[in-house]
Each structure stands twice: as C-alpha cells, then as structure tokens.
Amino acid sequence: MANLLEHEAIYYLREAVAQLERPALLFSGGKDSIVLAHLCRQAFLHLPCPLLHVDTGHNFPETLEFRDRFVQEFKARLIVARVQDSIDRGTVHEEAGPRPSRNAAQSVTLLEAVAEHRLDGLLGGARRDEEKARAKERFFSHRDQHGQWRPKEQRPEFWNLVNAFHHPHEHFRVFPLSNWTELDIWRYIQRYQIEVPSLYFARPRRVNSQLLADEQGREELVRFRTIGDMTCTGAIRSRARTVEEILHELETTRASERGTRADDQRSQAAMEDRKRLGYF
C-alpha cells in the first residue's frame, strides 16, 4: 500500500517535469537517487528525463557497476559529468593533503554540466532530515544565474502550489523526497523489493581506524549508510545483511546518518556553505 509520502513525491516529480523544460535526475547510485528514479517510473511509467551522474573519480567500484546495470534496465539516458574533466580544464584545483576530497569540487562540475546541457531543473533525492541546512530547503529551490542558493530569499511555498517561474540560466533544485526520513527510504525499498548496491549491507571489509575503506586496514564487519566520495564516506559497524535487518537497526540506533561523512564534520556550517555555492 503506497503511503502519503509516495503520493507527495510523485506529485512534485510531475510538477517538475510539467513545469520545467530540461530537467535531469541527479543519480549517484545511492539509495535516495535509486528510490527517486523508481518513483519517477511510477509517476510517468518510464523515465521522462536523463540521469546525471557527477563522477568524482573516487567511486566505489560497486557503485559504477550498479549504475551501468541500472541505466540499462531503466532504458535511461545517462550524462556523466567528470570532476577530472574540470580539473583538466583548470576550473577546479585538486585539494592538497593526504586524503584529498573531491567533494567540494563536485559543485563546479555540476554547474558546468547544467550550463553545457542547458538544464533548468535538477531532481535530487536530498532529504530534510539528513542535515540542518537541508532542513531549510523547499521542494522547489531556486538557484540564480550563478547556481547559488540564497537561503534568506527563498520563495515561500503555500499549500502545494509550485512557483517554477525562472529567467534564462537560472535553475531549480527539486527535492521530492524532502519529507522522507532514512527509515522511509528503506521501507520503500522493502515494499517494492528494490535492488540497491551491496555496499549498504554488512560484510567483512578492509577499513582504517575511522572506518574509511582502506586496503591496508584491518577487516571488520561493516556496512555503509551513505555512499558518497569513497575518500570521505565512512562505514558503520553493523550486522545488518538484509533490508529487514537494516530496518531493525535503524529503528533502534541513535547515531545520525551523515555522522559518517567527514565532509560534513569540517565545521558547523559546512553543508550550508557548500550549498550556497551550488552543492547538492
């Protein structure tokens, strides 16, 4: 039985596709974007827009394999925007230091893809419960010509009315899963028996002391709660090998989902600062 959140997400997906001219669905191969793509198929009976993958070059190999199979099964059109290309173009400089993260660089690559493909809408699986700055997002979040988010000037959203008016070169980030929690995502995955990358399920993996993937590290029984850039996404100790076990784990855990993300830990306003500059 579909629940209210599904109906709500489908409503906003349809608004996005009906009101925007050239939307794309941001696809990372993570659970949220997988769920979003499935909802898209429920809304339109096919995928009405291309998938856009921002490739940091620091992917878990499983994610890429999963992505390619997914694209085939959904008969999707895939656009890949590579951070490496931005580095080669000189629009992005690689971070210095021992574990350079390409997380911040993604924003530049993403905006370059928006311009290149003349996109006016990016559908994303971000949820308000992930992080404090995201808790302030609207369903339709306006970005100016420079791709910037101006949190103080957000358009109000009254009832379910969507104001998607925009000038050329502006775009919207659309978050149909705004009201979902991590638990809702997994309940949906369970309800529709959706396949997700094996990284989400516990098995012995080599990790370092911060539980980041590390071939030199020791073996531990872990799984990933989020899948991002491999250099900054930490695992959690877990025995959950199935969707049901993950649901049980989430219902009893008290740690936050993004607590494993080194990129969010850098400062109080880390996410907000990245979002202002165009991060997803």
Binding site: D129, K132, A135, K136, P151, S178, N179, A269, E272
Partner: peptide
C-alpha cells in the same frame, strides 16, 4: 541550521524535523 540564525540567535526560515 543557518549560519545567520546561529549568529543572530533567531530563526529565519522554516526548519523541518521528523
């Protein structure tokens, strides 16, 4: 959740909690 909010000790925009 916003920097201005913490600095000015006020709430500027709607924050959602679940």
């Amino acid at each position: 959740g916003l920097r201005d909010e913490r600095e000015q000790k006020i709430t500027i925009d709607v924050a959602y909690r679940y």
